[in-house]
């Protein structure tokens, strides 16, 4: 019997963008407000899990054509490289710094190197969560 879940699919197509935008907001506001790489990565993974619920795993793998384990490995590499990068400036491992820049659209903005480390955390959380959920979902 064909199941007709057009409402779920339509709602998913709309809500996924809201969840991803919310996760990016939570990720970027983590320096001064509640949030950060971990919860941002979890929310992005939740958006892809919702696509997997409404459609199937093949669709998610078509959207992200990279192996999920490779994503978490890349994130781990980025996190380690931000630690090693402080050696270039003759500082200790994982020393972070920040400065104020004048960006064209945002005006005076504080840019911290801790965001680069947070991008690593973000990618690791996305990769590991999607790997766990879709590995469990695949063997039936």
């Amino acid at each position: 019997m064909r199941t007709n879940d057009v409402i779920l699919k339509t709602v998913t197509q709309l809500v996924t963008f809201i969840i991803i935008i919310f996760s990016i907001y939570v990720f970027l506001s983590g320096h001064h407000h509640p949030g950060g790489g971990f919860i941002g990565g979890l929310m992005t993974a939740a958006a892809f899990v919702l696509i997997g619920l409404a459609f199937d795993i093949e669709t998610v793998k078509k959207i992200i054509p990279i192996d999920f384990k490779l994503i978490s490995a890349t994130g781990m590499l980025i996190a380690v490289l931000t630690g090693i990068g402080s050696f270039v400036f003759d500082a200790n491992f994982l020393s972070h710094t920040f400065d104020y820049f004048h960006l064209p659209l945002l005006g005076e903005t504080e840019l911290a190197t801790a965001v680069l480390f947070d991008i690593g955390v973000y990618l690791v959380v996305i990769g590991i969560t999607l790997t766990i959920i879709f590995t469990i979902g695949e063997d039936q």
């Binding site: 919702l50 619920l53 199937d56």
Partner: peptide, 20 residues
């Protein structure tokens, strides 16, 4: 997301389809 997952589990018995 939790309600959608439970509803799909009740209706079809699986939460994540491999392929439609």
């Amino acid at each position: 997301i939790g309600t959608v997952a439970f509803a799909k589990f009740i209706e079809r018995g699986v939460v994540l389809d491999r392929k439609r």
